[in-house]
Amino acid sequence: MDSILRQDKRPATFNGPLEAGIRAVALLGAAFPQTYDLQRLVALDFLLVHTGDVGGPESLHPPTPHRSAELLVRRGLVEDALLLMMTRDLVQRQAAPDGFKYSAGENAVMFLDTLSGRYLRALKERASWLVATFGHHSDQEFRAVMRRFFDDWVEEFQHIEPSTGGKQ
């Protein structure tokens, strides 16, 4: 899983659709029977690898500057991941009055039970913690949580430049 080959034979990053798909299945499996929309899954996927930033277990991925920018590119990745996992009945998509919702598919439990590597066990543990901690928040409550952490990340990594137009 370190890297997979793209059709153009260049190695894909570790954070490709397969890995994101496994994270989505772990999140949806931990949340079952609850469903989430794409936007919530994007945010949960981000938090899943950065749990240490939100008071949880040690983060799976190392801290990097400008983590908040990850949210901007993550949507397409998570969407591709969900589509990939749907082809194997690991994720189900249902139409709801407020848009599409995703849940663990028929094969999700069996698939998750086969994941036994150290990283994958840690991933499942963090998915369970994340769902227990934030999974039942209303959309408004969850947005407030994300806004609070987003503001902290922006403040932490913001480069403050001295003013060039006036006295200091």
Rank of each mutant, 00 (worst) to 15 (best):
Y36P: 05
Q168D: 14
L112D: 04
D45L: 05
A96K: 13
K101L: 12
K167D: 15
L77R: 07
L5Q: 11
E79V: 01
A12W: 04
Y36G: 05
L90H: 08
F142L: 12
L5W: 06
Q34D: 10
K167I: 14
G52V: 01
F142Y: 08
H136V: 04
T133E: 12
F149L: 07
M1E: 13
A12F: 05
S138E: 08
E79I: 00
D37E: 09
Q7D: 15
L71F: 06
A69M: 10
L5I: 07
G99H: 11
D139S: 15
D113Q: 13
Q7L: 14
T87D: 14
A12L: 12
V145M: 11
V25C: 06
R121H: 08
R148A: 12
V91S: 04
K9Q: 15
V78T: 11
E19D: 06
E156Q: 13
V109P: 01
D89S: 15
M86A: 14
G56H: 02
L123Q: 11
R67K: 14
L90F: 07
V109K: 15
A30I: 08
R88Q: 15
A144G: 07
L90S: 03
G166R: 14
R74P: 00
E161I: 08
R6C: 11
G165H: 11
V131W: 08
A81I: 01
E58W: 01
L38S: 08
P97A: 10
L77V: 10
E79D: 12
A30D: 07
P33S: 07
L48K: 00
K9C: 09
A104P: 03
D37W: 02
I22G: 05
E141P: 02
L44M: 14
I22N: 03
S103Y: 03
A81M: 02
D53G: 15
M86I: 07
E125A: 13
S163W: 10
S68M: 12
N107Y: 01
W129V: 01
W129N: 03
L5E: 08
F14A: 11
Q7C: 12
F157C: 10
D8S: 11
L82Q: 04
G117C: 05
A127Y: 03
G55C: 05
S3M: 11
R93F: 01
P57V: 00
S116M: 08
V73Q: 09
E70N: 10
E125I: 02
G105P: 06
D151W: 01
D98N: 11
E106A: 12
L84C: 05
Q92P: 00
R118K: 12
Q39C: 04
R23V: 03
G52M: 03
K124R: 13
A132C: 01
R74W: 00
A108T: 06
T114P: 00
Q7K: 13
V73T: 11
Y119S: 09
T164G: 12
S163Y: 09
K101P: 00
L5T: 09
S128K: 10
L71S: 05
G135Q: 04
D89A: 11
A20P: 04
A30R: 06
G29F: 03
F142P: 04
Q34N: 14
L115Q: 12
Y36L: 09
T87P: 01
V131G: 02
